[in-house]
Simulated assay, not measured.
Amino acid sequence: MVDRTTIDHWRSAPRLTAFARFFERTARGESGAPDLAQPKIDLSLLDFDLEAAVFSDTHRRLWGHFDSHYFASIPYRLEEEARVGAAILAFALRAWSRSASPATIYTLGTGTGCLARALATLGNGRIEALCCSPTAANRVSFVAKRGSDHAHFFHGPFFDLTNDRYLSDPELFPFQAGFDVLLEDTTFQMYDRDRIKQLDFVVPRIRPGGILVQVQKLAHEDPDTYEERERQKDELFKTRYFSAGDISKKKDEVLNTMTGLQVDLATTAAALGTFFRYSVVTWNSGNFYTIVSSNSRTATLELVSLMLKPAIPPGYCYERLPVILVDTEAEPLAPELSWRCANTMAPLAPRRQAF
């Protein structure tokens, strides 16, 4: 059980203090927007997959101000959102089909909640989706393009979503029994380095057979390696969307402070192993990772098998994916881990030459 001292520490963390103004201005569209070009998905990296394209199209229609900033800041994160979003949608619909009641999804710290809104929209009553943000302007974006009555927004930090809040807030009633999928997106690193306490707060909300998906920016045991990957991100990717001045300003305003709250892959694996029997890295882009964790071997294999292969140029990926972080000797994951094949949209895919 997370104690009051820890909660008070989180409440004074950079996300709610030093970073608050940056996030509010960016979410209002007052600053932080790409000034050279808008991010646009490269469907060729997803093999023109139909499910990913449908998810991406819905997702893009629901963007708020913060989303364009976010997807222009992390190399190929937009393609990863479509890849993971399509997989979570299929996973949630399977959960709905087994229980005959809506699947529940919580996207923790996802800005405008665009992922949650896209999933609720495509679920069409089969998915109840919740997102949270302490930034008021993100709630404005959420309401402006809610997309579905089955999408819900909590205005506040993740640690204010206590058991009492789920029981007393009518907007949260669909989530009293927990979540089939809980996705944490680059949020823990803005509050603290203690991943065990952060996981201890959210893991009890995951239903039996449920999944935790994390998008994390990780430290590296070699500081030079970390910085080289940062230079690649800033100089080869972000310069497509942001001027050099904007990139430097964000680094000074946010990223340098946030680095101190990041942990490395080994620390992440150890924390996840405290709570889960299985944990797998399914995506890597420089210092960014997607990690899937669960106590259910079946659920882990199911979600991973619903993912396309990672949609990223090899030069940005530094891991041989998937990477198993936590496993069991009796029932290991490795023999059955696999990506799904793309359901290619033939009219969009390049024609093969006949020889």
Results as ranks from 00 to 15, higher is better:
Arg15Trp: 00
Arg15Asn: 02
Ala18Pro: 01
Phe19Ser: 04
Ala20Ile: 00
Glu24Leu: 02
Ser31Ile: 03
Pro34Asp: 01
Pro34Thr: 13
Leu36Met: 08
Leu36Asp: 00
Leu43Arg: 14
Ser44Met: 06
Leu45Ala: 12
Leu46Asn: 03
Asp47Lys: 15
Asp57Arg: 15
Thr58Trp: 00
Phe66Met: 07
Ser68Cys: 00
Ser73Gln: 07
Ala82Arg: 08
Ala90Thr: 15
Arg94Gln: 15
Ala100Gly: 11
Thr104His: 15
Tyr106Gly: 03
Gly113Val: 12
Cys114Leu: 02
Cys114Ser: 10
Leu115Ile: 02
Ala116Cys: 07
Ile127Lys: 12
Arg139Val: 07
His152Glu: 10
His155Gln: 13
Gly156Glu: 00
Pro157Asn: 03
Phe159Arg: 05
Phe159Glu: 07
Asp160Leu: 00
Thr162Asp: 05
Asp164Arg: 14
Asp164Asn: 11
Gln176Asn: 08
Ala177Met: 09
Asp180Val: 13
Leu182Lys: 06
Glu184Pro: 00
Phe188Ser: 01
Gln189Ser: 08
Gln189Ile: 01
Tyr191Ile: 03
Asp192Val: 00
Arg193Ser: 05
Arg195Lys: 10
Ile196Ser: 08
Leu199Cys: 05
Phe201Ile: 11
Arg205Met: 14
Arg205Phe: 13
Arg207Ser: 10
Arg207Gln: 11
Gln214Lys: 11
Gln216Ala: 13
Lys217Ala: 13
Glu221Ile: 11
Pro223Asn: 13
Asp224Ala: 14
Thr225Phe: 10
Thr225Met: 11
Arg229Pro: 00
Glu235Trp: 09
Leu236Lys: 10
Phe237Arg: 05
Tyr241His: 14
Phe242Ser: 00
Ala244Asn: 04
Ser248Glu: 13
Asp252Phe: 11
Glu253Ile: 07
Met258His: 08
Val263Met: 03
Asp264Trp: 06
Leu265Asn: 02
Leu265Ser: 09
Ala266Ile: 07
Ala270Thr: 15
Phe275Val: 06
Phe275Gly: 03
Thr282Pro: 05
Phe288Ile: 14
Tyr289Cys: 07
Tyr289Val: 15
Ile291Val: 15
Thr298Gln: 11
Leu303Trp: 02
Val304Phe: 04
Lys309Gln: 10
Ile312Gly: 05
Pro314Tyr: 01
Arg320Phe: 08
Arg320Met: 06
Arg320Ile: 09
Leu321Asn: 11
Leu325Ile: 13
Thr328Val: 12
Ala330Tyr: 07
Glu336Leu: 12
Glu336Ser: 14
Ser338Glu: 13
Ser338Phe: 03
Ala342Ile: 12
Met345His: 11
Pro347Met: 05
